[in-house]
Design a protein around this nucleic acid. Structure first.
Lengths: 225, 225
DNA sequence: TTAAAACTATGAGAATTTTAGTTGTTGAAG
DNA sequence: CTTCAACAACTAAAATTCTCATAGTTTTAA
């Protein structure tokens, strides 16, 4: 099982290399996209792991060029939260999966295992949550409403994700605090309200139909109308 | 099993009351320290849960007065991070346990169970980590070095706690990132170094013997000299 | 011994998260 | 139909967390 890792930052590169080798994968490395392309064309890798931002040839271009050359090797893209424009480009560049930094190494390993299992590469596709034009891509962490990209912070994302997973259900503030903040208790402050407010500004403000609703004395719901 | 809960903030009070009643405790409530004292003197509670900051009679004074009246009922103090001066007063006021807000309700329940088990009230005493004049009280979250109080943020506290639990061992940056930040990976930034720097400023700067040491190329250790 | 490379320290600042206070709403009781 | 109290929205500011750029240090190797 041979894997190509492409990354310009030496520390990160060697951390991945070492981690993978400890798990008995054969690892080739490349410091930039150009060398990566050469290697990928020449050898038959089971998987390519590549950063997006790199000198020479970035991850997207690399991915597209390989696909155009008929190379079907699964590609796992590493990205950092907030590289939004890049992410959008990536949607149709042929990359199989994304992993948003920072992440746990075990998470990377899980992805690697899944992607190197023949045929499963299409099985574990983009995991997204959808509701009334609102879309959350859990892989790339990109949120859109009616195709429009919405930038959320980590906390906002977690809150929205929880509401999406419980759409239609009224969620009390205590419930939200427990599940989004891991706080099982009244802190005396109104942080849930504040964050609902933040979300509304980003998700409902510029749209006609509001999705976040207040149920007086009960909590909040994500629902149509 | 009868419990007295003392708290001036109605929401918090009722949240605790409800939670405890759901777990089949009988709950009496008081909105301030004066009423609490009356109730505590009159009835024989298995446990008293009290906030520290309250109108009339604060938690510390309440605790002390009850002890002086010969009432041995275990007392669980609720406190918020950063109420430092108050905390110091509390050390010898006879309170059995502290719980720092925000907390999980299950945590409160666990404490309640432990405190209402007869005899165990002294078993589960102040849990502290100590090393060379440095002391961390895990209950009150108060850190001192040579009796001097040191204010740490949540992250700094977690980092120091991890180093205390592994005193003498060299901890790599990856290891620290994993255990303190739950990040299993190189993010390309030097946040560990930055936080080590923060800790040093607070813990070592004003003292002769330094406790945090750099092991070049390996990581950091907490040790004498 | 010196220069380069790798690694670490530090200051400043941006972004996010959290707190606090004020204003606005809602629903229930009189 | 008012009035009040509880609840929620909003705003601003404080605190914390994290990033980035630069300067300094240690090791390695020529």
């Amino acid at each position: 099982m041979r894997i190509l890792v492409v990354e310009d930052e030496p520390k990160t590169l060697h951390a991945i290399q070492q981690g993978l080798e400890e798990n008995l994968y054969e690892v080739d490395i490349a410091y930039d996209g150009l060398i990566a392309r050469q290697l990928a064309m020449r050898n038959n890798y089971s998987l390519i792991i590549t950063d997006i931002i790199m000198p020479g040839l970035n991850g997207f271009v690399l991915s597209r060029e390989l696909r155009e050359s008929g190379i079907q090797t699964p590609i796992l893209m590493l990205t950092a939260l907030g590289e939004t424009e890049d992410k959008v480009n990536g949607f149709d560049s042929g990359a199989d999966q994304y992993l948003v930094k920072p992440f746990q190494f075990v998470e990377l390993l899980a992805r690697v295992r899944s992607l190197t299992k023949r045929g499963s590469s299409t099985l574990m596709t983009h995991q997204t949550l959808k509701f009334e034009g609102l879309e959350m891509n859990l892989d790339t962490k990109v949120v859109t409403r009616d195709e429009q990209i919405i930038e959320l912070t980590a906390r906002e994302f977690t809150l929205l994700e929880y509401m999406m997973r419980n759409q239609g259900r009224v969620l009390s503030k205590v419930q939200l605090a427990e599940n989004v903040w891991d706080i099982g208790f009244d802190t005396g402050t109104n942080f849930v309200e504040v964050y609902i407010n933040y979300l509304r500004k980003k998700i409902d403000k510029n749209f006609d139909t509001k999705l976040i609703h207040t149920v007086f004395g009960m909590g909040y719901v994500l629902k149509k109308e």
